[in-house]
Amino acid sequence: MRIGLYGGSFNPAHAGHLHVSRTALRRLRLDRVWWLVSPGNPLKDPGQLAPLHERIAQARAIATDPRIDVTGFEAAIGSRYTVDLLRWLRRRRPNLRFVWIMGADSLGSFHRWRHFEAIATLMPIAVIDRPGHTMTPLSARAAHRLAAARVRESDAATLPFREPPAWVFLHGPRSELSSTALRAERARSASRAC
């Protein structure tokens, strides 16, 4: 089985997450995508974060594709770091072929993630184009460090079978939706209602 791992705060989950997942399913020829709803991103303000159970419930409502499973693995293992989660999954599911999925916006800050280079050696990475971040793969610090491991986009379907480090940047239709923008709109609506 080829499994895409799509981690994030999902604060809130939205149709853009579904779009990224469907792009990965199609272009990487994955069997499933697991949404890994994080208990908290160490690089983001925890005060902006809705409770985990609410984010998981909302993600399940958005994840209408039967090939997508919503999980809370990070909280279950007591970690907020991707590297810990990926090591845990590799130990428990050694027969699955995992691919880490991230948006191009995340690649821009990937070098700030705990042990980002170790993450790249644990499993292949698929970077999905995002509005305003199409040039990120060319300029991101992590992209420079991992340049020799970049796979041609035409070979994207081979990614689950490649030994890491290996990564691909997938262009295509992009979703303008973002959790940050949705939270800002909610805040504006709440202030107008007062």
Rank of each mutant, 00 (worst) to 15 (best):
R2C: 09
R2K: 15
I3D: 01
L5T: 06
G7Y: 13
G8R: 01
S9C: 12
H14I: 00
H17I: 04
H17M: 05
L18T: 14
H19F: 11
V20S: 07
S21L: 09
R22K: 14
R22D: 08
T23D: 03
A24C: 10
A24D: 07
L28E: 08
R29W: 02
L30E: 10
D31Y: 06
R32F: 05
R32L: 12
L36P: 06
V37G: 00
V37C: 01
S38V: 06
S38W: 04
S38A: 12
N41Y: 00
P42D: 06
L43W: 00
P46L: 07
Q48K: 10
Q48R: 12
H53P: 09
E54S: 15
R55T: 07
A57R: 15
A59G: 05
A61E: 12
I62Y: 08
R67I: 07
G72P: 08
F73M: 01
F73N: 03
A75W: 14
A76H: 12
I77K: 00
G78C: 08
S79R: 11
S79F: 09
V83K: 07
V83S: 08
L85G: 11
L86Y: 14
L86C: 11
R87G: 15
R90P: 00
R91E: 15
P94Y: 12
L96W: 12
W100T: 09
I101G: 02
M102Y: 11
G103E: 10
S106T: 14
L107S: 03
S109E: 10
S109R: 01
F110V: 06
F110E: 00
R112A: 05
R112W: 09
W113R: 08
W113E: 11
R114N: 12
H115M: 06
F116W: 15
F116A: 13
F116G: 06
E117C: 06
E117D: 14
A118Q: 15
A118F: 04
A120E: 14
R130T: 06
T134P: 00
M135Y: 10
S139R: 11
S139G: 07
A140F: 03
R141H: 14
R141Y: 07
A142S: 13
A143K: 04
L146S: 07
L146E: 05
A147H: 00
A147Y: 02
A147D: 05
V151C: 11
E153R: 06
S154Q: 10
D155C: 13
D155F: 13
D155A: 13
T158W: 05
L159P: 02
R162D: 01
E163V: 04
P164Q: 03
P164N: 02
P165V: 00
P165D: 03
P165Q: 00
A166V: 04
A166I: 01
W167I: 10
V168C: 10
F169P: 00
L170E: 13
H171M: 06
P173D: 10
S175E: 13
S175K: 14
L177G: 01
S179N: 08
L182V: 08
R183T: 09
R186Q: 14
A187M: 13
A187F: 03
R188H: 14
R188G: 02
R192W: 07
R192A: 08
C194T: 15
